[in-house]
Design a protein around this nucleic acid. Structure first.
Lengths: 224, 224
DNA sequence: CCAAATTTTTAAATTCTCCCAAATATCGTT
DNA sequence: AACGATATTTGGGAGAATTTAAAAATTTGG
C-alpha cells in the first residue's frame, strides 16, 4: 500500500517540516530533485491515504498517521546506520547510502533484532536521535556551529549524514558526535572557523561548519 | 541498468536451468507466477542486454555475462541468509523472505564485510552453496530423500528454503543440513517416509521429503 | 489595486512491469 | 503429413512514478 517512493516523500517531508510548517511543494521539489509537478501528484496520493493534509498552494502538513509512518522509516534508517557502523565496521561516511536502500526492505522483526543487538540505542553514528518503536523522538538541544561565538567550548551533538565527502573529512580531524572542541576564531563574512580539537587546530569552511550542530559544553548530554 | 525485476528473472532462470536447458518460458511463468506473456517480454529485454540467449519458442539460456550476474545475486541472497541467522539469530524459516528483499539493495562492499564476518562461508543455513566472489559455485553431490532406499543412513545436504512452514517443521524434528538420519521405511505409492533422527522417529510426508537433499553417510562432505 | 513575476497545478507523454485475449508456432498422433 | 492439443508470442492496455510544457492561482511591487 505504501510504496518505496511514498516512504521517500514522507522522509523528506519530515526533514523539511522541522524548519517549515506547512512544507511548500517547491521546497520538497528542490530537496528531492524532482519536478514540482511530481511533488503535487504524490502529495495528493499521500493525502488520499490520510498521511498528509494537503491544501493546494499552501503546502503539506503531516497527519498523525503520516508522522508515525515517517518516524518508523527514520527509525529503520538510523538503526541500520548504527548497526552497519558498529557490527560490520562500515565507515561512517558510507552508512547513509547503504541505509537509504535497506530502510525500505527490512521487516519489523529484523529491526527489533538489530535494536536489541545494539542495546536499544538512542543515537545514530552522526548523532541523530533514533525514534523509539512507539514513534517517540527526543530532540537534543543544539545549534549550528556557525551561530556560536568564538572563545567557547562545545560538544558536537550531530552532523549532517548526507554528504559523504564532508563526513570523511570530519573523521580525519576527529570531529564526531561527543567530541569536545574549542571555537578559537570565526572569520568574518562567512569565513572559515578555527577549531581546537584535542591538541590540534583545524580550519573548517563555513559551509562545512553549518552542518555541525553543537551544544555548550556544560549542559551537554552524554552519549556513547 | 539491471532492474530488480530483471534480477528476479535471472535468479529464477538460474534455478530452473539446473534441471533444464534451455529453460522454456512456460516453466519460468509457472515458477514466477507471472503470465507467459510477461516472461516473453522480459526475456527479450534480457537478451537485448546480452544476459540471455533467446530463441523464440525454444526458451532461454544464460550468456556468460548473465550467469555471472545471476551468481552474484545468489551470493548476495545466501550470504544475507547466513548472516541474519548467525549474527542476528533470525529463525531459519524467515531468513529467505528477508534475503529476498535485501539481496537487491546491498553494496558489494557490505557483502564483502558480511562474508568476512562469517569467515568466507561455503553454505547458507539451508545447505545451499554460496558462490564465491568471482562467481564460482560448487555443487555438492546429493539426491532427494524420496529417491533413496530404506535401511540406509544419510546426511542431510540441503533443504528447500522457500517454504517457511516446512522449514519450521523440519526444525522441530531437528532436520538441518549436516544432520544424520536413518531412512527406516518408505511407504509405497508416494507415501510418507519414516526417519530415525537421533533417538526419535518421525513420519515425513512425501512432498516434504522431496525438498530434502541427502548424501550417503560415508561419502558425506563436512560442513559447519 | 492592478500587472508582472513567481509558484503551483493540470494535462499529456514516457518508461517500466505486468496482464489478458487473440494469433501463431510446435509437437505428438495417427 | 496433417490434425488437434499445447506452448509461445503478439498486440493492446493498465497502473505507478516520473517528466515536460502549458495553464491557473498567488504573491509582490509600483
Amino acid at each position: 500500500m505504501i510504496s518505496q517512493a511514498m516512504e521517500d516523500y514522507l522522509k523528506a517531508i519530515y526533514k523539511l517540516q522541522q524548519t517549515m510548517k506547512p512544507v511548500p511543494t517547491s521546497a520538497l521539489a528542490e530537496h528531492m530533485n524532482f519536478s514540482p509537478a511530481s511533488i503535487t501528484n504524490m502529495c495528493k496520493k499521500l493525502a488520499e491515504l490520510n498521511l498528509l493534509h494537503y491544501e493546494p498552494y499552501q503546502g503539506v502538513v503531516f497527519t498523525e498517521a503520516g508522522l508515525q509512518v515517517a518516524l518508523e522509516i527514520i527509525r529503520h534508517h538510523r538503526l541500520i546506520e548504527l548497526y552497519l557502523a558498529k557490527a560490520l565496521n562500515v565507515p561512517w561516511d558510507q552508512v547513509h547510502a547503504e541505509a537509504e536502500k535497506m530502510e525500505h526492505v527490512i521487516s519489523e522483526d529484523l529491526e527489533d533484532r538489530m535494536a536489541e543487538a545494539l542495546g536499544d540505542p538512542q543515537f545514530d553514528p552522526h548523532g541523530a536521535p533514533i525514534p523509539s518503536r512507539s514513534g517517540k523522538i527526543f530532540r537534543v538541544e543544539s545549534e549550528t556551529l556557525t551561530d556560536m561565538d568564538a572563545g567557547n567550548t562545545f560538544v558536537v551533538v550531530e552532523v549532517n549524514d548526507e554528504d559523504s565527502e564532508l563526513l570523511r573529512y570530519l573523521g580525519t580531524i576527529g570531529l564526531y558526535p561527543g567530541t569536545e572542541l574549542l571555537l578559537v576564531e570565526c572569520a568574518p563574512f562567512d569565513g572559515p572557523l578555527t577549531l581546537q580539537i584535542g591538541e590540534e587546530q583545524h580550519n573548517l569552511g563555513y559551509q562545512a561548519a553549518k552542518s555541525v550542530l553543537v551544544a555548550p559544553k556544560d549542559t551537554s548530554q552524554e552519549q556513547l
